[in-house]
Amino acid sequence: MSIVIRDLHKAFDGKVVLDGFEVEARDGETLVILGGSGSGKSVTLKHVVGLLTPDKGQVEVDGEVVSDLRREELFVLRRKVGYVFQFAALFDSMSLADNVAMGLRRQSDMDRKEIEERVEECLRLVDLDGFGPRAPSELSGGQRKRAGIARAIATRPQYLLYDEPTTGLDPVTRAMIDQLILRMSSELGVTGIVITHDIDSAFRVADRFAMLHEGRCRFQGTPEEIRETDDPVVRGFIEGRPELLENAS
């Protein structure tokens, strides 16, 4: 039960984004992938659910190679993977409750009542109980992020992918989201991949770290290991010292 990314290559219009990235998220752990803006973190995440197909290399989820799956099989796989988008990507045309229920209506054989209950439960889990009838446009940024998490966990996925869950939020809300991520891991036992460049948040939630730099995996290890690493690129990134990065390259 794991997500294994092997030798992933991806280029857009000749511009290489991923150049042999390799990382593994083991069962039950929360893996944080660090990397600067535009380093290809989101691209990596999209490969995991098959939104993008790799130029070379592969992503395995539970031993299945994502890019080899047919469309119907891909939909089956996606039931096991919840995706929290950077800006939540809530459907503006429907209420929050409908947003959360979307996946359930298609991916489960629950009846109307069960779906209602599950939606309420998910909203409660992200501290949004009673927000069901609201439209996404009525929510604040933090609330939207939480709603996005509620939608992602509605189908009880084994894996949760967080695309910059704390970016652009105030410190209190950030802490709240971090707690939520931890809760998902402890209460629901999901395996998580969090991509972020928010170091504080990363240290709060991470079981293990990976650092994506210039399309490759620059570092992989536990929080203790990353604190003690000598790699100037990693140190420069986590300590916020650009001069170390410059010296390294």
Partner: peptide, 18 residues
């Protein structure tokens, strides 16, 4: 277009809606 740039179309995919 708005749904595309706000990743709502990707969100549909991840919720198994073609």
């Amino acid at each position: 277009g708005t749904m595309r740039v706000t990743e709502q179309i990707d969100a549909l995919e991840t919720l198994a809606y073609p």
